[in-house]
Design a protein around this nucleic acid. Structure first.
Length: 204
DNA sequence: CACATGATCGCCT
DNA sequence: GGCGATCATGTGG
C-alpha cells in the first residue's frame, strides 16, 4: 500500500486551469520534457481528493549513453525496468537506505530515458520547503517503491497536469550529485524555475 | 553468499 | 562543508 500524502498538499485542480499531459508530451526529447515539466503539477489522487505541487526543478537522464543514468550502457534490471517502458510511466527508486526519488519516463519503449523530479512548490499555505528535494518530494506525497511503473497518463492515482500559456524563466546547471559520471557530470541537464524559493540546492 | 556504494537530508561545526 | 543514518541493489566469487 502507498502511504497517505501530506494533508497540506491538498489542492483543487479545477481552480487552476490545468489539463492532463498526454502520452505525446512524454515521448518527446527528454531535455524538452525536463524543461516543460517546470511549472507542471505532479499530483496524486487519494481518497477522493487531490494532492500535489508545482514542479520547479528537474534533471534529464539521457539513457544508455549517459554515465549518470541508471540505464547507462543498457543496464536492465528489475529496478530500472520502468525506464524501458513507454513515455509517461513513473520510475521510483530507493536510495541511501532511507529515501525514494521519482522520475518521469520519456521517449518510446526500449529507449530508457527519464526526468528526475527534484523539487516542487506546494499549494498556497504549504511550507515553502516541504517539497524542496527529490526525497522530500516523495516523502510528502507518499511516493514509494510500489508506485514505480505506474502510468501517469491513464487517469490513475498519479498524474502530471500542465498549465496553459505562460512559461516560467528557466535556469540551467549541471546535475546534482553525479560527480562519479565522468564527462557526463558536467552536462547542463538540470533545469529550474529562476523565481522559485523552493529550488532544492544552489542555483547554478 | 558477501560486500561496497549511492540521482539524500538535516544537523553539526 | 562534513558526517551519520540505514538498506536495496548490483556485482563478483
Amino acid at each position: 500500500m502507498i502511504p497517505a500524502p501530506d494533508k497540506r498538499l491538498r489542492f483543487d485542480p479545477l481552480a487552476l486551469d490545468l489539463e492532463d499531459a498526454p502520452r505525446s508530451f512524454f515521448r518527446r526529447d527528454t531535455i524538452l520534457v525536463a524543461k516543460d515539466l517546470i511549472g507542471a503539477w505532479f499530483t496524486r489522487h487519494y481518497r477522493g481528493a487531490w494532492y500535489g505541487g508545482r514542479v520547479v526543478e528537474t534533471e534529464a537522464y539521457l539513457g544508455t549513453g549517459d554515465a549518470a543514468a541508471h540505464s547507462w550502457k543498457g543496464r536492465r534490471t528489475p529496478r530500472v525496468e520502468p525506464m524501458y517502458g513507454d513515455g509517461g510511466l513513473l520510475y521510483v527508486f530507493f536510495i541511501y537506505g532511507m529515501h525514494y526519488c521519482a522520475n518521469v519516463v520519456t521517449r518510446l519503449p526500449g529507449d530508457p530515458q527519464a526526468v528526475l523530479l527534484r523539487a516542487a512548490e506546494g499549494p498556497e499555505g504549504a511550507p515553502v520547503r516541504l517539497l524542496s528535494g527529490p526525497a522530500k518530494l516523495c516523502d510528502a506525497l507518499g511516493v514509494t517503491r510500489s508506485a514505480s511503473g505506474l502510468d501517469l497518463v491513464a487517469g490513475g492515482r498519479f498524474r502530471i497536469l500542465v498549465p496553459g500559456g505562460r512559461r516560467p524563466s528557466i535556469g540551467v546547471s549541471p546535475r546534482v550529485g553525479v560527480d562519479y559520471a565522468g564527462e557526463a557530470a558536467a552536462w547542463p541537464l538540470r533545469f529550474f524555475d529562476r523565481t522559485s524559493a523552493a529550488v532544492s540546492v544552489s542555483r547554478g
